[in-house]
Amino acid sequence: MAPIQFGILAVAYQVVDAAGPTDLLASASKSALLTIRDYVPIGDDLISRAPEFEFHHIGVTKDPVDLGTSQMTIVPTTTVDECPELDILLVGGPYLGTFDLHPKHADLIRRHVAAGKLLFTTCTGASLVASTGALDGRMATVNNIEYEWVRKRWPKVNWTREKKWIIDGNIWTGSGAIAATDMVAHWLKENYGLDVLIQAAATLDYEPRDSDGLFNVFPQRFDSKGEKLSTHIFRYHEE
Results as ranks from 00 to 15, higher is better:
N170Y: 03
F120G: 01
D223F: 03
D223S: 05
I47E: 12
L46A: 10
A10R: 00
S27H: 14
A12C: 10
G125N: 00
R37F: 13
R138C: 04
T231E: 13
I8R: 02
G169E: 08
A26V: 11
T231H: 13
V75K: 12
V75D: 08
L204I: 11
H232N: 01
D23E: 15
V184R: 07
A180S: 15
L108Q: 01
V217K: 08
L194C: 09
D17T: 03
V196F: 09
G7K: 02
P84A: 05
G137V: 03
W165I: 00
W154C: 02
K225S: 13
G213E: 09
P64L: 04
S70H: 15
N170I: 01
I166N: 12
V113N: 02
Y147V: 07
L9M: 12
G193F: 14
V142R: 06
F120M: 00
V196R: 09
D38L: 09
S31P: 06
L86G: 03
G20I: 04
E239G: 10
Y192L: 03
V60I: 12
W172A: 02
W159K: 06
A177T: 15
I58P: 01
S131R: 02
T22E: 04
A114M: 06
G137Y: 00
A50L: 08
T122M: 01
S48I: 00
R49E: 14
G226W: 05
D17A: 04
N170S: 11
P94W: 14
K117P: 05
V142G: 06
C123M: 08
F99H: 15
Q199A: 09
E239L: 14
V80H: 00
W172P: 02
I42C: 04
D17K: 02
E52R: 07
A130L: 07
E190F: 08
I88N: 06
Y236T: 09
A28I: 05
G137T: 01
V157P: 00
T160I: 06
P41F: 14
I47L: 10
V91W: 00
D182S: 05
T121W: 00
V16M: 14
G137M: 02
A201S: 14
K104N: 04
I47K: 12
L135N: 01
V16Y: 15
A106M: 00
F6G: 00
V11W: 10
Q71N: 14
L194K: 11
I178N: 10
W159F: 09
E227Y: 15
S175G: 09
Q220P: 08
N144P: 09
A114E: 15
L214D: 11
